[in-house]
Write a protein that binds this DNA or RNA. Structure first.
Lengths: 223, 223
DNA sequence: CTCCAATCTGAACAGTGTTGAGATGCTGGC
DNA sequence: GCCAGCATCTCAACACTGTTCAGATTGGAG
């Protein structure tokens, strides 16, 4: 440890670690920059040589976590129970990974899912959203999703999974049986995919998917 | 206006109004209790005779907004385009109301959807979630949703709509064409309902819906 | 008219994010 | 080996925050 040393080895990630621990202990907002600095054994102003502001620290933590989650989801798809080459099973595994993460680490999940995560030029290596679209492509290529249903499907599936994760992390939905969350998540994914496929055959008033695009760059002007 | 008067007429709701305006102007967290008090023309400590803390103020605003939204969604269901006695159209109208609210008033929506909204004993008159379950019951009664699909359906539909609203409010999804949001929302609702109905006939591994219950009471111990 | 309880003020406290001037120690060129 | 230069970190200070509490002010009941 860098106790007593003037120059800390890697203060940047040490601060991120401290912040992450504090979020877990005291909730999304129940901690201060000064506290994180003190825990690392450094003065409050030292943090400003690595982060422009407290908000930047939070965003960095969010991005780090998001990238980690992306890796994990990708992994979950590969290690899908049953045959991992069934695209629908892979998507269900993805959904379960996403949801169980938000349940296992609700405080950090709340922080990340708050949305301030994705900054304009953030290069989050495997962004969870990208993992999802890749899996949807795989499903479509395998014939599991009609072309008309594929258009903008990530939009619908993402919304459902995201909503599920948020509601669970916020404690607005509670499962007595921890096993039930997996079942319900699978149900959400299956219902969404089947519903989309079925919808494609009813060309009633399907939206012009071209005019809609999901993006992870948009940010409000003033935080 | 109570300028110069020592006793403000209805300080409680005046503070809520000021806080709501500040949220709209400066975002969810870009304002202070002191600022809201000053705007009403009152000392900071005056607020503490009506709210136990700043957090309580925020929660009260959240509940007020949620009740208002509940009323509006109910209204939207009645005034559903086409025949308002078609349960599915009513549900689509509900979804559109929910989503367009979060788009029209994103800052306040972010505050409300953060989840701290529903306190243990909060008696939110028509809670949006209750409006949704009522409409799902109506759909099920009309035969539009098989009994097996009805069980825990509010869970799936709510997640999808909530996720949609959150993603839009946070700016993570953006529509160029404002009309497209209505179409996509309808698509989400339809896909979800159809998917649920279809799932009910595939009794593969449907979760035991008894062990899962959505509740709006759960709160984390420490905010 | 008087008194009381509700309401609001003023001053204070500890703690916050943030800044700038200066101290400290690592590193690379002589 | 040494010394300059530079990134890194400290210290002290700023304006501001949420919150508390003793006391001033009021409207209304008796």
């Amino acid at each position: 440890m860098a106790k007593g040393r003037y120059h800390h080895g890697d203060l940047r990630s040490a601060l991120l670690d401290a912040a992450e621990a504090l979020v877990r202990e005291r909730g999304v907002d129940g901690w201060s920059l000064r506290e994180a600095s003190a825990r690392v054994g450094v003065s409050p102003s030292a943090a400003y040589h690595h982060f422009a502001s407290r908000d930047t620290l939070v965003r960095a933590l969010s991005e780090r976590t998001l990238a980690w989650l992306g890796e994990r989801l990708r992994h979950d798809c590969e290690r899908a129970p049953g045959q991992a080459d069934d695209p629908q099973r892979r998507l269900i595994a993805l959904g379960r990974g996403y949801v169980s993460w938000s349940l296992d680490d609700p405080a950090v999940a709340r922080l990340v899912l708050r949305g301030a995560a994705t900054a304009p030029d953030s290069a989050i290596s495997p962004h969870p959203h990208d993992v999802l679209t890749a899996e949807l492509d795989r499903l479509a290529d395998a014939g599991g999703l009609p072309g008309a249903a594929r258009e903008g499907a990530e939009f619908v599936v993402w919304a459902a999974l995201h909503g599920l994760a948020v509601l669970l992390a916020d404690g607005l939905i509670h499962f007595d049986d921890p096993h039930a969350v997996e079942l319900q998540t699978g149900r959400v994914v299956r219902a969404t995919l089947n519903g989309l496929a079925q919808e494609a055959s009813h060309p009633a008033d399907r939206p012009a998917a071209r005019s809609a695009h999901t993006e992870r760059l948009a940010r409000r002007p003033r935080g």
